[in-house]
Computed example of a mutant assay.
Amino acid sequence: MLHKNFILPSYLCIMCNRLTNETRDHLFFECPFARACWSYLCSQVAPQSTIHANISSLRKELKVPFHLEITAMVTWSIRKTRNDCIFEEITPSLFRCKKIFNDELNLVFHRAKRQSYHTFKQWIDAFR
């Protein structure tokens, strides 16, 4: 992603190797890698025109009260997979992104207040 005062040799998406600038929307929703990550959760979700429309579409598809936690963890997993590729030279893979997602989601569960997340652990266990 292009940031102020942060110079990279290229601003093209390294995840899909297309001649596309790596914008927030591209990285998290339009890139074929990101779409594969989302299809792991919601096979019917297609990229929308805005970030808000993408989140709304995910909320409708997931149908759980903790959809924002899931959305945050998937975007974090995509970003971490990308950063590992750039900075650690680890080849990005859907398997790696899934593992990051599962590990991080379990950490969120353990930090959550149990009474407000009574179905969260069930969803995590059923999801694997």
Rank of each mutant, 00 (worst) to 15 (best):
W76T: 03
K60P: 03
P65Y: 09
P9M: 04
I70V: 15
F28P: 02
D84K: 04
F28Q: 01
I100N: 14
Q115L: 05
N17P: 01
A126G: 12
W123V: 04
I51H: 01
E88I: 04
Q115K: 14
H3G: 06
C37M: 09
A34M: 06
T91R: 06
T91W: 05
T81W: 07
H3P: 11
I100S: 06
P92D: 07
P47T: 02
S56P: 00
F109M: 06
C85P: 00
Y117H: 06
S56K: 10
S49D: 13
L58K: 03
I7R: 14
R79Y: 09
F66G: 00
I78M: 02
K63G: 12
A72W: 06
K99Q: 13
Q44R: 08
F95K: 08
T50C: 01
P32A: 03
A126C: 11
T20S: 09
R111W: 12
K63H: 09
A34F: 07
P32D: 05
K60F: 14
V64W: 11
T75N: 12
F33A: 05
F33C: 05
I86G: 00
I70T: 11
L8K: 15
C13S: 08
R82S: 01
V74S: 04
M1K: 10
I55P: 02
S57F: 00
W38H: 08
W76G: 00
W38A: 08
S43H: 03
C13F: 07
